[in-house]
C-alpha cells in the first residue's frame, strides 16, 4: 500500500516536474515579455506542486528521502510522467497545445483529487486546482488566438495538434498504481475524466475551426517508465548537479 501510494505520487508529481522543466527552458526566450512572464508563472506553479507532492512522497518513502532525492535521484526508468509532457518546445504552438492538453486533463483530475480520502493529497490538490484553473484559461485562450489568428498560426497549431494529440491518450491509460488508488478512494478515476477532457478539447477547437478527428493514439508508456528519447536529455540537465556533486548541501 505504501509503495503503491509512493508510485501514485510519482505519477502525479512527474508530470508537473517534466512539464515545468520544459516551460523553464523558455524563460528569457518568450515571444513577448508578457508571455515570457506568464510561461514562467506556469512553470513556477508546477514546480510548487512538485515540491508539495515530493515532500509527501519522501515522507511516505521514509528513510533519508527528501523532495530532492525524489526529484533528482531516480534512474530514467523510474520517472512516471506521461510522454506528452516531455515533448520538446518545437514552437509556441507546440508549447500551448501540450499545455492545453495537460490542463484539460489535469483540471478534472484535480476536481476528483480535492475529495481524495488521503488528506494530504486533497490539501495539495485544493491549492493546485486554483492554479490549474488559471493555466487552463491561459492555454485555452491561446489555442483560440492561434486557431483564430492568422493563416500561419492556424497551420502551426494544427500541426502541433497532429503531433501531440496522439500522446494524450496515455493520460487515461490506467496503471496498476492508479487503479489501486482509485479503488481505495485516494486516486482519481481516469475513465470519468476522459469524456470531460474530450468535451473541453472539442469545444475549444470547434470555436476556431480546429479538429482532432482521425488521429490514432500512439503507443506511449511513460507512466510505466518507458519514455521517449527526450527524457534522458532532460534528466541529464535536471540531475547534473546532484550527479556531478553528490551528497552536498546547496
Amino acid at each position: 500500500m505504501k509503495d503503491t501510494l509512493y508510485d501514485y505520487l510519482l505519477i502525479l508529481g512527474d508530470n508537473p516536474l517534466i512539464l515545468g522543466h520544459r516551460l523553464s527552458e523558455l524563460c528569457g526566450h518568450g515571444p513577448t515579455l508578457e508571455t515570457d512572464i506568464a510561461l514562467t508563472n506556469l512553470s513556477l506553479d508546477l514546480f510548487g506542486q512538485v515540491r508539495s507532492l515530493f515532500q509527501y512522497a519522501a515522507a511516505v518513502k521514509g528513510g533519508n528521502a527528501t523532495e530532492d532525492s525524489v526529484a533528482f535521484l531516480r534512474s530514467e526508468r523510474g520517472y512516471k510522467n506521461a510522454i506528452l509532457l516531455e515533448q520538446p518546445n518545437i514552437d509556441f504552438a507546440h508549447v500551448m497545445v501540450r499545455q492545453f492538453l495537460y490542463d484539460a486533463f489535469n483540471l478534472p483530475q484535480l476536481e476528483q483529487l480535492v475529495k481524495s480520502k488521503d488528506k494530504t493529497i486533497a490539501a495539495i490538490s485544493a491549492k493546485s486546482i486554483k492554479e490549474c484553473r488559471y493555466h487552463f484559461r491561459f492555454s485555452s485562450q491561446w489555442i483560440r488566438r492561434l486557431g483564430g489568428g492568422t493563416e500561419e498560426s492556424h497551420r502551426r497549431v494544427t500541426n502541433a495538434i497532429n503531433v501531440l494529440y496522439p500522446f494524450a491518450d496515455e493520460l487515461f491509460n490506467e496503471t496498476m498504481a492508479e487503479q489501486k488508488m482509485k479503488e481505495v478512494g485516494i486516486g482519481a478515476d481516469l475513465a470519468k475524466i476522459k469524456p470531460i477532457f474530450v468535451n473541453e478539447i472539442n469545444e475549444t477547437f470547434n470555436e476556431v475551426g480546429l479538429k482532432v478527428a482521425d488521429i490514432a493514439p500512439r503507443i506511449a508508456k511513460g507512466k510505466e517508465g518507458l519514455h521517449s528519447e527526450q527524457l534522458g536529455h532532460i534528466l541529464a540537465e535536471l540531475q547534473y548537479m546532484q550527479r556531478a556533486y553528490p551528497n552536498m548541501q546547496w
Binding site: 492568422t150 498560426s153 502551426r156
Partner: peptide
Amino acid sequence: EGTWVREAALAY
C-alpha cells in the same frame, strides 16, 4: 520566432 505569435494575437 515570436513574430507569428504576436501577429496571431493581434489578428485574433
